[in-house]
């Protein structure tokens, strides 16, 4: 099945020693570089969305607008509800530091009322209604909010970006395929005479196609591996200099499976280019008698 990859010396001589004309390998290298970078970004976005989802799925906040006079009672109440795994009050100083970014020194003023805030995590069987009724018994004005509702738009954007990355990978693959089609047609034009002679002597389309398929496969393999190697270096440099990104995304990184996918991308691109070249050459040959 893959014997076309290993032609005899006489078969190699049929199209001459020169490699295929044109920048096929370069175009594929650029496409491969872009595909790996965008693929890595897409996978990282998917992981980030996963980490965020896991982190906030079971997390809720209790907000008491009047302030923190009864925070300790509130904490004790929440912790007493079955299914609540943990509960912690957000220190007032931390909230004032946060407000300081918008309000400046005025945020430290004791005249500025700061709400009490309690975060709690629940297990899957927890009854939120019971939490709410007990909380309202202690602090009637308290509001309970799910973190996932607040972060929902961000998660939605992350997932959208992930699909955009996936779409870009497909678009770049299509562009690489188009470049291969052009290269195949150019090669056919260059070797039209040889093809006519071979056909006249009784060569089948498949015999002629093998010659071009191998050359384009080699160009595609060289280009895609070179592009992926440069992309790998760029990703390493980014990873080394961007530990802050890990903090921002809750420690989301590329997993072993992700690296395997990224390694397979250039090989998939080579396989696609080879198949496209074969199809393009066969289609062009069918136009002749």
């Amino acid at each position: 099945m893959l014997d076309w990859l290993f032609p005899s010396p006489s078969e190699r001589r049929l199209l001459g020693e020169a490699r295929l004309r044109g920048p096929t390998a370069w175009v594929i290298a650029i496409m491969s570089f872009s595909i790996v970078i965008i693929g890595a970004a897409g996978l990282a976005l998917a992981n980030t969305a996963g980490v965020l989802t896991r982190a906030i799925e079971a997390r809720y906040s209790i907000q008491v607008p009047a302030g923190g006079g009864n925070v300790e009672a509130l904490l004790a109440t929440v912790r007493s509800v079955p299914g609540v795994n943990s509960a912690a009050a957000v220190p007032e100083s931390e909230m004032r530091r946060t407000l300081e970014r918008w309000l400046g020194p005025a945020a430290q003023s004791t005249e500025l009322p700061v709400p009490a805030l309690v975060d709690f995590d629940v297990s899957s069987g927890a009854k939120l209604q019971e939490v709410a009724s007990r909380v309202h018994a202690v602090a009637p004005e308290a509001k309970i909010a799910a973190h996932r509702e607040a972060v929902g738009p961000l998660l939605h954007s992350l997932r959208l970006l992930q699909w955009v990355a996936f779409g870009l990978v497909l678009l770049l693959s299509a562009a690489a395929s188009a470049a291969v089609v052009l290269a195949a047609r150019g090669a056919l034009d260059t070797h039209r005479f040889t093809i006519e002679v071979m056909h006249g002597i009784g060569a089948t389309d498949v015999q002629v196609t093998r010659l071009f398929q191998r050359k384009i496969a080699i160009d595609a393999l060289v280009g895609s591996i070179a592009g992926a190697a440069v992309a790998g270096l760029v990703l390493l440099a980014l990873a080394a200099g961007a530990s802050f990104a890990g903090e921002l995304t809750g420690g989301a990184t590329l997993s072993g499976a992700d690296f395997l996918i990224l390694l397979l991308l250039p090989l998939a691109l080579t396989a696609l280019a080879t198949w496209v070249a074969r199809t393009a050459v066969l289609a062009a040959l069918r136009k002749a008698l």
Binding site: G202, T204, D205
Partner: peptide, 8 residues
């Protein structure tokens, strides 16, 4: 056209 090579 697929049968022609054998005759050629």
């Amino acid at each position: 056209r697929e049968v022609l090579p054998n005759f050629r």
